[in-house]
């Protein structure tokens, strides 16, 4: 797949503590905050009707549970390979949002990593990073 540019964020899943406790194991039934996994906005037709990346002009390929993407933090070049475990993020809620790092910017939330995956390429306290996804 050609490289996709956008914003990466993180989300918790599995039976974790706090408000995360109600989120569950995700659309694939395998999601855990401690595993190298991610959520993808087009895991199924039903998923796409919720996330609607098309409303932000993003055309994302259909990729199902277990598919591996590599997300590169464009601030640092740190990269991580993760597998799909959930549907998300809801891209259309923040169409046009931009996150920058120096002169490098990413627009639209196109991928959500688990805390374990996100913290390998950035700080959880930042919440959003410009990213390249392959």
């Amino acid at each position: 797949m050609a490289a996709l540019y956008g914003e990466v964020s993180w989300f918790c899943c599995g039976n974790s503590w706090g408000p995360c406790g109600t989120v569950g194991k995700g659309a694939c039934g395998t999601c855990n905050s401690g595993s190298r996994q991610h959520a993808w906005p087009n895991t199924s037709a039903a998923c796409l009707t919720i996330t609607r990346p098309d409303r932000c002009g993003e055309t994302l390929a259909r990729r199902t549970c277990g598919h591996v993407h590599t997300t590169t933090n464009r601030c640092t070049g740190k990269a991580i390979a993760t597998s799909i475990a959930d549907c998300g993020p809801q891209t259309d809620l923040f169409c046009g949002e931009r996150t920058c790092c120096g002169s490098v910017c990413g627009s639209n939330r196109v991928i959500d990593l688990t805390p374990s995956a996100y913290s390998a390429i950035g700080s959880l306290s930042t919440g959003l990073l410009p990213a390249m996804i392959t």
Binding site: C75, T76, G77, K78, C100, C101, G102, S103, V104, S123, L124, S125, T126
Partner: peptide, 20 residues
């Protein structure tokens, strides 16, 4: 922190950071 992250100096040195 957001101002720092938007700086060119940060982008050229952030790969060396290990912590928050």
């Amino acid at each position: 922190v957001t101002q720092l992250i938007r700086s060119g100096v940060y982008r050229h040195t952030a790969a060396a950071l290990r912590s928050d």
